[in-house]
Structure formats: structure tokens, C-alpha cells
């Protein structure tokens, strides 16, 4: 999929400024930058949720997973009904049921969760349900906007593992957005750094993290919280 010259404006304010970015099939492109840098606006444009100018080629079915798993599931729908919303084609009841079970299985959730309501689930489980719902539409691009930042560290690892297994096992292409470079580094094949609406640096993960070319990338690298260090000297 190729994004070319994409611009998103809100009134006179330009949130995304002529961004060009390629997401190769079966790859995860990580998008990192501070809040307000335009990451979410880019994600929403790619997902068709906000108007834009420019071209988006090669992605017909884009699905998005949102940051807040407490807001992205209808509190009055069972998990099964939410996931079934994305199931395409005219299936009968039993077919739907089986498909929901399969999708829950893909995100490592037990099938009996289908009858539960979101309030009975933990944040990590909800985020898996949101991913399962998106997968039901068989997307050719999945956009994940800060999907671990509302989660506890103890479940973040499991969701990141899920993201990687979706790529490895389903060949899913993904735009993975986060403000945490360590998280982006872990899941992405390609990293793009966004600053004030523009992509200031993009390249293979090892290269961007190992030999950052832009000052802003270096600032981001330096700011990654580290267990041992930094602020005590």
C-alpha cells in the first residue's frame, strides 16, 4: 500500500502535511512521534474517517483498532455480537458463530467469551476483542493507533506478541502507531518518525534506531525510559 502526498486539514490547521509512506505487504510499519504530531490524523485518513487530499493506493479494506479499549466496544453488545459485526458475507447463524469462534481463537481468547459483555473483560482482553472484530472483515491493512498505551505493562507484552503473530501467521500488513520508540522498535519492520505533521525520517527499523539521521529521532531515542539509568547522576 502506498500513501502519497497525504494532507489532512482541520480548518486552517494542517495536521498532516504531504506525507508519503509505503507499507509493504505483510509488513508492519511503525509510526512514532509525540502527541499532536499528526499520527492519529494520518491513521484516521487512511481508515477513511476524516477527509484528506492526496492518494492512498492499494488498500481497499482498512480496519482500525483504537487506543482506548474501554471506548471502542459497545457496552451493551456481547463480545460475540461485536465481533460478528465485521463478519462478511451471508452466513447463517451457525456459520457466523463458527466464524466468531475462529476469530476469537486467532487472538487467543476462549470461545466462551462470546457471551460476555465488555465490562466483564480486562483491558487486554478487550483490546484482543477489538482486534478480532477488525480481522473479521479480512482487512488488507490494519491500523493500530496506540493500542497498548491504555494497557498495563503486564498485558502490553501479550498484545505486542499478538501483533507480531498476526503478521507472521496471517501475513497481515499493519500501520502501528505509538509514541514509545521501544514498543515500535519491537514490532515494526520499518519505522517512520513523524514531527509536526511531516515524516522526518523513515527506514528499516535497525537503521532508524541504530543510526538515526534526524535530530528529532535522536531526541526520541534518548527519551525512552530505561530501567537502569539516566536521571540519577
Amino acid at each position: 500500500m502506498i500513501i502519497e502526498d497525504l494532507t489532512v486539514r482541520f480548518g486552517a490547521f494542517t495536521a498532516v502535511d504531504r506525507v508519503t509512506l509505503e507499507i509493504p505487504p505483510g509488513r508492519i510499519v511503525g509510526l512514532v512521534g509525540e502527541s499532536g504530531s499528526g499520527k492519529s490524523s494520518l491513521a484516521r485518513a487512511v481508515s477513511g474517517l476524516v477527509p484528506y487530499t492526496g492518494r492512498i493506493d492499494g488498500a481497499h479494506n482498512v480496519q482500525m483498532v483504537f487506543q482506548d479499549p474501554y471506548a471502542s466496544l459497545d457496552p451493551r453488545m456481547t463480545v460475540g455480537d461485536s465481533v460478528a459485526e465485521g463478519v462478511r458475507g451471508r452466513r447463517d447463524r451457525a456459520g457466523r458463530r463458527a466464524e466468531v469462534d475462529r476469530l476469537l481463537g486467532l487472538v487467543s481468547l476462549p470461545a466462551d467469551l462470546a457471551g460476555r459483555y465488555p465490562r466483564e473483560l480486562s483491558g487486554g482482553q478487550r483490546q484482543r476483542v477489538a482486534v478480532a472484530r477488525a480481522l473479521g472483515a479480512a482487512p488488507d491493512l490494519l491500523v493500530a493507533d496506540e493500542i497498548t498505551s491504555a494497557l498495563d505493562v503486564s498485558v502490553q507484552g501479550a498484545v505486542l506478541n499478538l501483533v507480531r503473530s498476526l503478521r507472521d501467521e496471517l501475513g497481515l500488513s499493519m500501520l502501528f502507531i505509538s509514541h514509545n520508540l521501544a514498543v515500535v522498535r519491537y514490532v515494526s519492520d520499518v519505522v517512520a518518525v513523524m514531527h509536526q505533521g511531516r515524516v522526518v525520517e523513515a527506514g528499516p527499523t535497525g537503521q532508524v534506531v541504530g543510526e538515526p539521521a534526524h535530530d528529532y529521532t535522536r531526541a526520541l531515542l534518548e527519551a525512552v525510559p530505561r530501567l537502569t539509568g539516566g536521571l540519577r547522576e
Binding site: V153, V155, Q156, G157, N161
Partner: peptide, 24 residues
Amino acid sequence: RALIASLPDMDTDRDRPLASIPGR
């Protein structure tokens, strides 16, 4: 230990799954 292991940092091995804590 699990909290530390489940946290990706700039040196985490990208070829291995992250540790995670099952349940809640």
C-alpha cells in the same frame, strides 16, 4: 521479574516473544 521481562526496551531481542503475565 515478570513486569521487567514483559517490558520491551531498546535492547530487547526482536526475534523472541515478549514475556507476558497471564490472567488478571
